[in-house]
Design a binder for these strands. Structure first.
Lengths: 206, 206
DNA sequence: TCTAATGTGTGAAATAAATCACAGATGTAA
DNA sequence: TTACATCTGTGATTTATTTCACACATTAGA
């Protein structure tokens, strides 16, 4: 499939919104309502949906339940690709036990840390390993996604190791700016960058 | 100023990259190198920079130090707008003490939680308040940014309160999909959404 | 069973963004 | 001091995205 980044971002948010609507027991939703929720126009929403080859009902909108299920199928959210977490500090261990990931396309199958001490102390049902095992585990278990929660100074090195081991995507929670080849899916999740982004939005909006 | 979201995103990342380069003692950087770091083209980088009205040196590139300083000025990262954190759980308290925010345009001036117990137990040098004080504090101290770290089920309500109190931007760490008026700067920072986004990238890239 | 209201789906048009192409500047090396 | 290589800056062009406009479908109400 061939969707723009913006479309993917909107579709992802639509999914989250559908999730909330389903919980509230709503049956149908219109492109207009979705547009308002996402801060865009109904045209854009309908284009996005039609790009996915999906379809709604005239005068009713889209069936929340069906649309959500169909979207999950399209985005392969039920596929449970394998993910691992590198760096088992506060954030890393919290994410380790984030069971909900399974409903969003990923299953955390391993944790890594360079401190043997830490590995021994951790209580979790996910297997944890020393860094030396990284390549073995990633290759052996076909892990697709690496979630980096190490301190900034070792982030690039960890990313390099992940890529070397054949990882396909990286989610970076460290404040370091990581450089990755274009074929790697990469997303920055760090607070510092978010603050700067928001700061920049402030100066452009006012 | 009038910059596209994509440009802002790139500029923000460039800033992070300059930061790293400065630390490594690098003097000059070319648009080509920046492009490789961000996974885009040198043309795009130069356009972005020229859009900001900034300029480099022929055959040398951009002075890291000067460029970074200039960018900080343009993005008003030294301005220290006021921010508050709502929800003082693990994440919220961690962010409360994130001193670095000051270098990225924001200063956390208050924390809020609905649990009086929690407020009494918290040890921090930032002032914390019960939710009933939200409007007072935000208006009284001209707080610009609300950082939401409450559980999903109360996120929308908190957002509504913030907006009512006159907040200008919201950073949402909860997995809830929040609906805000268009004039509010809004950024989703939640893990769930990020996972779905990455899952969607997987299906489009392969 | 008509009519009005409402919401989808999609080519066409408009707008925005990225890329190209190349002139201009300047450092480097012989 | 000349020739060359390299990197910026920016109009022009291409490509991508968003918005528009409207035909079509269907529900609800009279």
């Amino acid at each position: 499939m061939d969707l723009s980044n913006n479309t993917i971002e909107r579709i992802t948010k639509i999914y989250g919104y559908l999730d909330a609507l389903e919980e509230r027991g709503v049956d149908f939703v219109s492109s207009k309502e979705l547009a308002e929720a996402l801060g865009t126009t109904d045209h854009t929403i309908r284009k996005d949906i039609s790009l996915l080859g999906m379809t709604g009902y005239t005068r009713k909108g889209y069936s929340v339940r069906f649309f959500k299920k169909e979207l999950a199928k399209k985005l392969e959210l039920n596929k449970k690709r394998k993910a691992c977490i590198i760096g088992l500090g506060r954030l890393g261990t919290a994410l380790l036990d984030y069971e909900r990931a399974k409903e969003d396309g990923f299953e955390v199958v391993a944790g890594f840390d360079c401190s043997i001490n830490k590995l021994e102390r951790i209580r979790t049902h996910i297997e944890v390993f020393p860094m030396s095992e990284l390549e073995n585990i990633i290759k052996g278990r076909s892990v697709d996604l690496g979630i980096i929660t190490v301190p900034a100074k070792s982030a690039q090195q960890v990313a390099d190791q992940l890529i070397e081991a054949g990882i396909k995507g990286i989610l970076n929670f460290s404040p370091a700016k990581i450089v990755v080849p274009k074929n790697i899916i990469y997303l920055d999740m760090d607070f510092t960058n978010a603050l700067r982004f928001v700061a920049a939005k402030f100066i452009t909006k006012q």
